[in-house]
Amino acid sequence: MDKDAMDDMFDVVIVGGGAAGLAGALTLTRARRSVLVIDSGSPRNAPAAHMHGYLGQDGESPAALLAGGRAEVARYGGEIRPGTAIAADRLPDGGFLVRCGDGSTVRAGALLVATGLVDELPAVPGLAARWGRDVLHCPYCHGWEVRDQPIAVLADGPVAVHQAQLWRQWSERTTLLAHTLRLTDGDRELLAALGVRVVEGEVTGLTVQDDRLTGVSLADGAVEGCRALVVAPRFTARSGVLSSLGLPTAALERDGHVIGTCVASDPATGATALPGVWVAGNVTAPLEKVAGAAAQGVRAAVAVNTYLIEAEGRRAVEAYRAGGA
Rank of each mutant, 00 (worst) to 15 (best):
D7K: 11
D7Y: 00
M9C: 01
F10H: 14
V13R: 05
V15Q: 03
G17T: 13
A19G: 10
A19C: 12
A20W: 05
A23W: 04
L26P: 00
T27W: 02
A31F: 00
R33L: 02
S40P: 04
G41D: 08
S42C: 03
N45P: 04
N45K: 08
P47D: 11
A48Y: 00
H50C: 06
M51R: 09
M51E: 11
H52D: 14
H52K: 11
G53M: 04
Y54A: 08
Y54F: 15
L55M: 14
G56P: 01
D58I: 01
L66E: 08
L66A: 12
G69L: 07
R70F: 01
V73P: 09
R75M: 07
G78S: 07
R81C: 08
R81T: 10
P82Q: 06
P82A: 13
R90H: 02
R90A: 11
L91H: 03
L91R: 15
P92G: 06
G95L: 03
C100Q: 14
T105H: 15
G109Q: 05
L111M: 07
V113W: 09
A114W: 07
T115S: 13
L117P: 01
E120P: 05
E120K: 12
L121P: 06
P122M: 02
P122G: 08
G126N: 08
W131Q: 02
R133I: 13
D134K: 10
H137K: 12
C138D: 11
C138L: 00
P139F: 01
P139R: 10
C141S: 12
W144G: 11
W144S: 09
E145R: 08
E145W: 05
P150L: 00
I151C: 03
V153I: 15
L154R: 08
A155I: 08
A155K: 07
P158K: 07
P158C: 03
P158Y: 02
V159W: 09
A164F: 04
Q165G: 06
Q165M: 13
W170R: 12
S171F: 06
T174A: 13
L176G: 13
A178R: 14
H179K: 09
L191V: 11
A193N: 11
V199C: 13
E200G: 15
T204S: 07
T207W: 05
V208F: 05
R212P: 00
V216Q: 06
V216C: 11
V223N: 07
C226H: 04
L229C: 04
L229I: 03
R234H: 12
A237P: 01
R238D: 01
G240V: 00
T249V: 12
E253W: 00
E253R: 13
E253K: 09
G256P: 13
G256A: 11
H257P: 01
T261E: 06
C262P: 00
G270V: 05
A271L: 12
T272L: 01
T272F: 02
T272M: 04
P275K: 13
W278L: 00
W278K: 02
A280R: 04
G281S: 09
G281T: 10
A285N: 15
A285D: 15
L287V: 06
V290P: 02
A291P: 06
G292P: 06
A293Y: 02
A294Y: 03
V298L: 04
R299H: 14
V304D: 03
N305I: 06
Y307V: 05
I309K: 12
A311R: 15
E312F: 05
G313F: 02
A316E: 12
E318R: 15
A319W: 05
Y320T: 14
A325T: 13
A325V: 12
